[in-house]
Nucleic acid binder design. Structure first.
Length: 884
RNA sequence: GCCGUCUUAGCUCAGUGGUAGAGCACUCGCUUCACACGCGAUAGGUCACAAGUUCAAAUCUUGUAGACGGCACCA
């Protein structure tokens, strides 16, 4: 068979995925071994509004490597795909579309119509990422694709909500929450990001104390909130203010009078020592308000504009306009003490960057204390989940859990899971799985459903088991076969940004509702940074599109490059890294091309590698192959993908291509059937090992190999059509590791390298052949004699003289290896002055090393305490240098 | 403020106590019949800095500097 001269990734990528998918190769059912162990991964569901970015590509690569590896090992394997309904993001897209196309607001069309539009939007645009995943070669079971708003997953959400409510883990309450005035919804703490503003102001306001001519100065970064002040607080131990506690302030710009209270929260050392208290607009003030039974005065509406409570002059003003106006009016009143520049960090909405307003609002919350304890116990008692890398994630995870606050789960959106709570006219709440159930609970009243939906992460939190069909219908848990087979999942692969948002919640909710672990292991990937070393982002415009990389270098090259990053480490994207693996793919292609050129009448035959009478290079490569296979498996077991990649790269390129093919070339070109069978067989095994990383290339090549048949398949997949996907992953055989062959081969390789080195150093043209003299122990001499032809060919030498001692003219180039001394008599074609300088430099270097070694060896401490083999090693090296 | 990670060859990165590694780039030589996305051979690092532990430190401890991340606070 003749292959093209270079590998073209496109054709391989186009030829195989569809067939794999349509043949059901990705489905666990393809495994027909009734005793097969199960292996499962659920995908972190990408957002339906998203498209593939490098972070996905990295995580998907790792998940696919694990899945393909385990599948080949004979596990009944499921990688379950899906998408997330992304409440706020989709809502915003649909609102935008509505405004642009029809100049309408959601209120114009109503909730029902809006939700229909959102579904339409999702159908139309929500599949971008799933199509891109096909391009990646992701071996997910598409027949099990889930969406967080699928019927069964929605049912799970309702059931979980009701159970948690019934057990008192979910409550509704008035709390200070993070409010985004643009999205007009509450946000959880995790959806709020801090942004540092250097141009912030700290405004000092003077409040007159009634019945005195004193004023109390308070400082604030949000002057407009003074309109909602209902007290001023000072430290109980602050002598400066002691006489004022209990007195009343005439709050400027309002006609309200507010008390001065003493509260431990206030730090006398900080600022002026007096704090304005706005219970409806600040979390700390809220707590002070609770302690002193203060009024909670809400002065803003849901869009961040001042409401009637703020007073006639302010109503309708945006909060920032009101801020300026308050400062201005204080100045006019002579009550503005000063305005300082102040660096401040502001909470902003993670998605739209609007400054978040803390606001008093009635919302639904999940009480986290008991769930937190469950998760902490799991970690303490069983070490689950085991993070890779363990440091620092385990510690960060644990620390976060220990300080966990209640979780705000209601969102003022229409797109999502509407909260299964209904109210009667008096505002009494009835929670039920259906409206009928709620009505029944209310004894037949007319009810209205809560208009809010649940946080998207609430449904994502059920992902580890809701995807397997868990709905907990009624009171009896509904255990589907999938749930039984695949929960707990084996590993979760994700980025560190959602450890809290998603991973931790999934652990807690899975434990609570199924009694199971969501997953044993968590692999936390690093961040792929832009070429500037900063995280990729639209605003920085430093993003690298995976699809472009696929087009430029091929999917396989991109995948294996991503897999070559140390687990958990950040990496700056660099094209040359991918290019390296593009070249590697081409190398594999061409090595196969060479093997196939001579393969007529040859078939892959694993028995061919078992023969006892193989020549040294064959014994050696079989040993290297098995050692590599064992080490690759070990590395993958530990989630050390980069180690596995490095092992495969060096085995294939250095051992197989640079040495084995070169050593065997003459035999193979000469039509030696036994040699050709062996090289094809070794190639076949190597291709299988590479498959999880480079699925397209390996499938393309494997199908071209002569003599592949269903007999080579993993027994679990007896009825599968031919594909490398369903072969067995080489486990490596310790018995096939031949240390002696490796030592002998190293001796041969060293000699060849030294001769090449001499040729290059002496500037001797490859056209000139010369005789190489080798001196070695008798056993080693035999090795050189047995491999004389190979040495002559690769060293481009004419003849070998092998003996116990070197017998050469003085004008010879000499070299030493671990096992031999060698010399090339020089016929005087070199410049002796140049050569002398070079040698002098080398002597200096070696002398330095010897001095250091001898120093170590003469140190009694070292000789006594260091392991014996280490001492011997150094002694040998010292003697070797002496010999030079 | 607290916790944590990183700092190794020009570039991008491996390397968790025992002679400093890879790929790319650079230099030299090869149209060698699988591959120039290639082959062969060099050159290039007081492993951020300082102190300590050890016979032995890139590797362990402590401190310093720089880069970054998480959490808290922010009147």
């Amino acid at each position: 068979m003749e292959l093209a001269k270079a590998y073209d990734p496109k054709s391989a990528e186009e030829n195989h995925y569809k067939r794999w998918e349509e043949s059901g190769f990705f489905r666990p059912e393809i495994n027909q071994d009734p005793n097969a162990k199960k292996y499962s991964i659920v995908i972190p569901p990408p957002n339906v509004t998203g498209s593939l970015h490098m972070g996905h590509a990295l995580q998907h690569t790792i998940m696919d490597v694990l899945t393909r590896w385990k599948r080949m090992q004979g596990y009944k394997t499921l990688w379950l795909p899906g998408t997330d309904h992304a409440g706020i993001s989709v809502q915003r897209k649909v609102v935008e579309q509505l405004r642009k196309d029809e100049n309408k607001s959601p209120l114009d069309i109503g909730r029902e119509e809006f939700i229909q539009r959102a579904w339409r939007w999702k159908e139309q645009y929500g599949n971008t990422i799933t199509e891109q995943m096909r391009r990646e070669g992701a071996s997910v079971d598409w027949t099990r694709h889930r969406f967080t708003m699928d019927e069964s997953l929605s049912l799970a959400v309702r059931n979980v909500f009701c159970t948690l409510y019934d057990e008192g883990w979910i409550y509704r309450g008035l709390r200070i929450v993070n409010w985004c005035p643009k999205d007009k919804t509450v946000l959880s703490d995790l959806e709020v990001k801090e942004e540092t503003k250097k141009d912030g102001k700290l405004t000092y306001l003077k409040y007159p104390v009634i019945g005195t001519d004193e004023t109390v100065t308070v400082a604030t970064t949000r002057p407009e909130t003074m309109l909602g002040d209902t007290a001023v607080a000072v430290s109980p131990s602050d002598e400066r203010y002691k006489h004022l506690v209990g007195k009343t302030i005439a709050l400027p710009l309002t006609n309200r009078e507010i008390p001065i209270v003493a509260d431990e929260y206030v730090d006398a050392e900080f600022g002026t020592g007096a704090v304005k208290v706005t219970p409806a607009h600040d979390p700390n003030d809220y707590l002070i308000g609770q302690r002193h039974d203060l009024e909670q005065l809400l002065i803003m509406d849901d869009s961040g504009k001042m409401n009637a409570a703020a007073g006639e002059e302010f109503v309708g003003l945006d909060r920032f306009v009101a801020r300026a106006k308050v400062v201005e009016m204080f100045e006019e009143l002579g009550l503005l003490e000063k305005v300082d520049d102040y660096e401040i960090t502001l909470p902003v909405c993670e998605r739209c960057k609007t400054i978040v307003e803390p606001i008093l609002s009635e919302q639904w919350f999940v009480k986290m204390d008991e769930m937190r304890d469950m998760a902490l116990d799991l970690m303490r008692d069983e070490g689950v989940p085991h993070f890779s890398p363990q440091v620092p994630h385990e510690k960060v995870y644990t620390a976060w859990l220990e300080n966990l606050k209640d979780w705000t789960i209601s969102r003022q959106l229409w797109w999502g899971h509407q909260i299964p709570a209904w109210y009667d006219e008096d505002g009494n709440v009835f929670v039920g799985r259906t409206e009928a159930e709620a009505v029944e609970k209310s004894c037949g009243k007319t009810l209205k459903q809560d208009s809010d939906v649940l946080d998207t992460w609430f449904s994502s939190g059920l992902w580890a088991f809701s995807t397997f069909g868990w709905t907990a219908q009624g009171d009896a848990a509904d255990f589907s076969d999938d749930l039984e087979d695949f929960l707990p999942t084996d590993v979760l692969v994700t980025g560190r940004d959602i450890i809290f948002l998603w991973v931790s919640r999934m652990i807690m909710l899975t434990k609570k509702f199924t009694g199971q672990k969501a997953f044993e292991d968590v692999v936390i990937t690093g961040t792929v940074l832009g070429k500037d070393g900063k995280p990729m982002s639209k605003s920085r415009n430093n993003g690298v599109d995976p699809i472009e990389m696929f087009d430029k270098y091929g999917v396989d090259a991109t995948r294996i490059y991503l897999a070559s990053i140390a687990t958990g480490a950040d990496i700056k994207w660099n094209d040359t890294g991918v290019e390296m693996y593009r070249n590697f793919a081409n190398k594999i292609w061409n090595a196969t091309r060479f093997c196939l050129m001579n393969s007529e009448g040859i078939a892959v035959d694993h028995a061919s590698l078992m023969a006892d009478d193989m020549p040294l290079p064959d014994k050696w490569i079989v040993s290297r192959l098995n050692k590599t296979a064992m080490d690759v498996n070990k590395a993958l077991d530990k989630y050390e993908f980069h180690t596995a990649v490095s092992l495969l790269y060096h085995f294939f390129w250095d051992d197989f291509c640079d040495w084995y093919i070169e050593l065997k070339k003459d035999e193979i070109n000469g039509g030696d059937a036994a040699s050709t069978t062996r090289i094809i067989t070794i190639l076949e095994i190597a291709i299988r090992m590479l498959h999880p990383f480079m699925p397209y290339l390996t499938e393309d090549l494997w199908l071209k190999l002569p003599g592949i048949s269903s007999e080579l398949h993993n027994a679990a997949y007896s009825e599968a059509a031919a594909t490398v996907m369903l072969t067995s992953f080489p486990p490596g055989d310790a018995a096939a590791i031949d240390e002696r062959a490796e030592r002998e081969m190293d001796a041969v390789i060293d000699v060849i390298k030294k001769v090449r080195n001499i040729r290059a150093e002496m500037n001797i043209s490859t056209a000139i052949k010369f005789t190489v003299h080798i001196a070695a122990d008798a056993g080693v001499q035999e090795v050189f004699r047995a491999n004389e032809a190979q040495i002559l060919k690769l060293a481009k030498a004419e003849a070998l003289v092998i003996a116990a001692e070197l017998d050469v003219p003085r004008a010879s180039a000499k070299a030493v290896t671990n096992d031999a001394r060698l010399a090339v008599p020089l016929e005087g074609l070199i410049d002796f002055d140049v050569e002398r300088t070079r040698l002098n430099n080398q002597i200096t270097k070696l002398t330095e090393e010897k001095t250091r070694l001898d120093g170590q060896l003469s140190n009694a401490n070292f000789v006594d305490r260091a392991p014996a083999e280490k001492v011997t090693e150094l002694r040998d090296r010292s003697m070797e240098l002496e010999a030079n």
